[in-house]
Design a protein around this nucleic acid. Structure first.
Lengths: 241, 241
DNA sequence: CGTAGGCTTGAATATGGTCAATGGTTGTGG
DNA sequence: CCACAACCATTGACCATATTCAAGCCTACG
């Protein structure tokens, strides 16, 4: 198990640094590590997990399944993302979590959360901050689904994913690894698989973005952002739990 | 100014009750009241408000405006909703807030938030809980936009609004007041105004839901939920800030 | 009385969905 | 080593849902 003081994520500028005090707390707070292979369901909608997690490495999806079998991917999970807040404070998960690639998760005990609020207000504040960031991103997603065309949505999603992976140091010469299926993206953006495929093909042919064989290459982010109809967002720091 | 111990919202079963201790804290925490008329912008995207709010009465919208002038309504605001978390913890609002009807807001100083985390972990925990509830609702909205047809979306939205207003005691014989324009609903659901209008008309003709002149009447919630393709959700309690 | 804002309606159009079939790759068992 | 199944990506044809455009109506308000 990687102790928090040796956590590779702490080297990313994307995350706010820990104070000595916080680091000491996290070392005790981290209860273990969970390694899962691609395809594993980590948390189930409606479950009452005794644990909460932080993604240490790998990728996954949060999603909801509807009565009619349709699926909505709420968002994609990348290193540094916190999982299980709803179970943590509300007592029940409102969506499921599945690994799309081999994943390593830091495990925390839900019962320790309350202690954190009592004894470590700074960490509690950070957790709320993380929740606010999540809320912000969901608002962005909602805006994409509500106001953008299929092409713009896909461009926007690829940009956002690229941006997020760059933030955790997974980019090399404009290329990032991407472990999802086209179906996942389609389910995230409210598009059919067929249309998603055709649109991705267009982006590929126009040279704006190339996603195939688990790799996403974006040559000119500014141009893609223009196509997506969204300003390229700056890299804002956020806390890491 | 209504002191928190006399807050009418506390009488709603929808909200978890305060302990004596919490009530005492809230009495000091509440810094004032803000009364605005319909059409007023309470918070602007990008602003760095020194205050955060709770809706005491009235209705409003959270929304984002895009480069092209399009607008996405993130959600509707009702009594008991907390506003400004993002500015509170992240330092900047990511959406705007506008009053759709005369609104009274409880005002809190952003600078007191950190004191709350240090001195009142139970209230801090509740704030995180509120954030998690918000996240849950946004996920539901995302699912509605991504997976449901126009008719289902509108039925779903009307149900949810009805449900929320019932929770704060604003229902009388299946009827709730509703201060929004059709354009607001259209912008919330990613539909055009024209199509929203026609769909509302259909719901009216089929007798499932009747929204006109600022009143929404739902005769049979079960039937409407069936039409919306969603299970009628139970009333879950949440904290009030 | 004139204007503005919001609601209503019809017709033409387009964006994206559905259906159906094919190809490539991987893994498994005979 | 080959046959087969499973899974995912790809493509074409057709169709439906929802958008856009355009106009008329009603009410509130100055």
């Amino acid at each position: 198990m990687i102790p928090c003081d040796k956590c590779p994520l702490r080297r990313c500028q994307y995350f706010l640094p820990f104070t000595e005090d916080e680091l000491a707390f996290m070392l005790r707070f981290k209860a273990g590590e969970l390694t899962v292979e691609a395809g594993t369901t980590v948390l189930m909608e409606g479950s009452n997990s005794p644990q909460v997690f932080t993604v240490l490495s790998g990728m996954g999806t949060r999603y909801k399944t509807l009565e009619d079998g349709n699926r909505q991917v709420i968002n994609f999970l990348f290193p540094g993302d916190f999982i299980g807040l709803q179970a943590g404070v509300m007592g029940e998960m409102k969506h499921s979590v599945e690994a799309s690639a081999p994943m390593v998760l830091c495990v925390f005990n839900r019962s320790d959360l309350w202690n954190m609020f009592k004894a470590h207000p700074a960490r509690a504040y950070d957790l709320t901050w993380i929740a606010a960031v999540e809320e912000h991103f969901l608002g962005e997603s909602l805006t994409a689904l509500g106001q953008r065309s299929a092409g713009q949505r896909i461009a926007w999603a690829l940009l956002r994913i690229h941006h997020r992976l760059r933030a955790v140091g997974l980019e090399t010469a404009g290329v990032v690894p991407l472990a999802f299926r086209q179906q996942d993206l389609a389910d995230a953006l409210g598009l059919s698989l067929v249309h998603t495929n055709k649109t991705l093909m267009q982006l590929r042919k126009s040279g704006l973005a190339r996603w195939s064989d688990g790799s996403l290459a974006i040559a000119d982010r500014t141009k893609l952002a223009e196509y997506a109809g969204s300003a390229p967002e700056p890299l804002e720091q956020r806390p890491l739990m």
